[in-house]
Each structure stands twice: as C-alpha cells, then as structure tokens.
C-alpha cells in the first residue's frame, strides 16, 4: 500500500552546504499494518515521515500510495505531530470539526462526527475549552481526533507521545491501540522509544545514525489485542525490547551499518 522506493534526502543549508539526511530508503508497508520507525535522534526518521506525508519532497526516489505517486499532502494521509499543532483560536470541538468543514461536510454531520471522536479519545465534556486550557496529553488526544475526523486511510505519527510524561504516555499508547483495533488503519509511527515501538507495532524498522539508512526490520510476533500489563510479563516482549536495544546501541557506537 505504501511503497517507499530508494528515497534519499539532502538538505541544503543557507551557506550552500549539503547535509545528507536520508540515504536510499526502501520500505513497503501493507494496508492495515502498524509499522514503527525507530532510530537515534537526528537520523532522519521524521523527515522520512514528512516525505510520505508529501510535506517534504525527496531529493531522489519516490513514494507511492496505492500505486499513486505522492506529490503533496492529501487527506488520505493524516499527520499527528509531537507538537500537537492544534489551532489555538479554535475550541476542542472547533479543531476536531475543522477538516470536515473545509471538505464541505454539512455542519450537523460534522458536529455529530466530531462529538463521536471526542468521546472516543475520552474528552467528552471538554468540547468548549481552548487548547491553552488543556494539558499536553489532552492536546494530543484532540490532535488525534482532529486527524481521524476526516477519515485518512493512513496515519502518520511523528513521535506523538514524545513530549508527554511517562504515565500519560502509557495511557495514550493503550488508547491508541484500542482505537486502532476498531478499523486497523495503516500506521507509520516514528519514535525513539524501543518499548513503545515493540508494544504498538507489527514491524519495527530500525535506522542508523545520520545520514539515516535502514538498519534492520524486525517483525513483532506478539498476539493482539495487546495488553500492556500482560506484555510486560511476557518473555517474548522482553526479548524483543532487549534485542532491539542492543541493535540500537551498536548503531550509536558508530559501527558500520
């Protein structure tokens, strides 16, 4: 469904220096698959996600989604950012309705859909608050609802829980999996947390230090629906986490990829 074909990205700085960020990445993601991209900070994993989103153009290679080449953003690929990026002048309800209204959905329908999603992310009763009145975890819930509202078939999540405290983070991970189990959208999820990647994903893609290359792809063969408490006691889960952490360490120490 998503085909990333030999994608490279080189940034040009203001002084005309060329900074390679991504090097020859190829990856295929099947429909309904939950894939995490894991790598040290600065390895270009977010850039890869932005390229799939159509927000950033690749320097070489191409991304196709359902056979169509990506040339720009589309409501079929919904982003969720670490920075939340909510519209601060809109209420919770206004934010979640926004995409639907822009697409010409009738107000009553947009309202009903928004209320349903707000309930799904456990924010019923907070509809009329402004983003500045919300905690980080609540903001990210709104952002997830805002993106789900316009029914993208692919979710592009860029370290969505990276700015949250540990407790909020695990709650949102659980809720995300609950939501995902309902319709199993395709998810591309960028993170630097090994545990998070293993807990959520069908496959974990590891990357090397900048310029990022694919290091290894690990299939996570753990039963779904997953429960965090059960997994933490599961020997296989522990093995995946420890194995991938070792792999990441070898990338950090600068070993050739």
């Amino acid at each position: 469904m998503i085909a990333i074909e030999a994608v490279s990205k080189t940034f040009e700085t203001e002084k005309r220096r060329r900074l390679p960020a991504l090097c020859d990445i190829s990856l295929a993601v099947a429909a309904g698959e939950f894939v995490s991209i894991l790598g040290p900070s600065g390895c270009g994993k977010s850039t890869l996600l932005y390229i799939v989103g159509g927000f950033v153009a690749p320097s070489a290679g191409a991304v196709t989604v359902n056979g169509q080449r990506v040339t720009g953003p589309s409501p079929d690929r919904g982003p969720v950012f670490q920075e939340f990026a909510l519209f601060p002048w809109k209420t919770v309800l206004g934010n979640v309705m926004y995409g639907l209204q822009r697409q010409g959905v009738a107000r009553q329908q947009a309202l009903a859909r928004a209320r349903e999603l707000i309930a799904m992310v456990h924010l019923a009763g907070y509809e009329n608050l402004y983003p500045k009145e919300l905690s980080g975890g609540m903001k990210q819930r709104v952002a997830i609802a805002r993106t789900l509202a316009y029914r993208p078939s692919i979710l592009l999540m860029d370290e969505p829980f990276g700015a949250l405290d540990a407790h909020t983070r695990t709650r949102l991970q659980n809720d995300l999996l609950d939501i995902w189990e309902r319709d199993r959208k395709t998810v591309l999820f960028v993170t630097h947390s090994v545990e998070e990647a293993v807990f959520l994903s069908d496959r974990v893609v590891t990357m090397t230090r900048a310029p990022g290359r694919l290091k290894q792809i690990i299939a996570i063969d753990l039963p779904r629906p997953r429960s965090r408490a059960a997994l933490l006691l599961d020997r296989r889960f522990q093995d995946y986490v420890v194995g991938i952490e070792r792999l990441m360490d070898s990338a950090d120490s600068g070993a050739p990829a």
Partner: peptide
C-alpha cells in the same frame, strides 16, 4: 506560524 500547523491544514486539503 508553526510549520506543523500549516502542514496539518494542508493535509485537510487546504
């Protein structure tokens, strides 16, 4: 204006 806010809007088809 935050880049990500504009990207979010672009993804809505704006």
């Amino acid at each position: 204006v935050e880049q990500k806010m504009l990207w979010s809007a672009a993804a809505m088809g704006m």
